[in-house]
Amino acid sequence: MAADTSIWQRIGFRRSFGVAEAGWGRTLVVAGVSFVYFLPVLFIIFTAIKPQALALSVPPTLSPTSLFGLIPDQFVFTPTLENFSSVFSRVMTGGGQPEPTGFDRFFFNSIVIASASVLLALILGTLAAYGFSRYPLKGNDTYLFIILTTRMLPAIVVIIPVILMFRAVGLSGSYLGIILLYTAFNLAFTIWMMKSFFDELSTDVEDAARIDGSSGTRVFLKICLPQVVAGLAATFVFGLILTWNEFLFALLVTGPDTRTVPVAMNQAVSSGGRGTDWTLLAAIETLFLIPVFLVTFFLQEHLLRGVTFGTVRK
């Protein structure tokens, strides 16, 4: 046995697939890859705690600590939290008292709009996906394809009629308008994704429950939904990420009261004609990353857990 274990097998690549256990060797390899992959983000986070004067220094400053002398002094900067406070209130040109920038409101808007629209899309989309999967309509594939087409056109084409429509009915600049727009924006992906999960479930258990007299609602809620929790979590995370960072619709449809962070961020860093304010941009982005990062982190268990707990699969 020992004769045919290669170095790769010994450090944890013993079997290539499946949720098998692997050792610390695998951790080391993956940690290396992940760290390199994460570097550009790390740089943004470090820029957020840089003194503003060092943002564009040559050579670039890379780290807030010298890591016990590992990193040469020229690449090290002293961290500061100044940038984070200037996100919410900053001294405008000409001096005087710091003025509020309204970013607390924009963060609130982003949270309300993204979570409402993603949840709404998840509820409507899951129902529709279950319908498409279990009670196929005449021309089922055609409907699904039309739904997919709604994602194919560049947003700019849809947005002009949407603006005209919203202005006509007074939805322009309201929460309802942007939430409905984002719900539709997420529905195509939600339906396709959830349908692929429902399709993969075995119908044996459902049929058995039906024969035993369970109602359709009960079969859906008690038997189908628990099996696709992983799919729901994944869809929720994807929808949240896409909606959270959406820029074009938000730019054209939201008003000053409902403006979301990406739009405000774009305006904040390029206003004043002095070029990009790197440390401010990094500070906003870092703060803006935290909620979606936490949600993804806490849903990760579901995201990764296989959907195989004793159910018969096709």
């Binding site: 992959y37 994460f38 550009p40 990420i241 959270w244 960072n245 961020m265």
Partner: peptide
């Protein structure tokens, strides 16, 4: 994380 960043930033 890269996926969660705003494209603007």
């Amino acid at each position: 994380t890269p996926m969660m960043l705003s494209v603007v930033a």
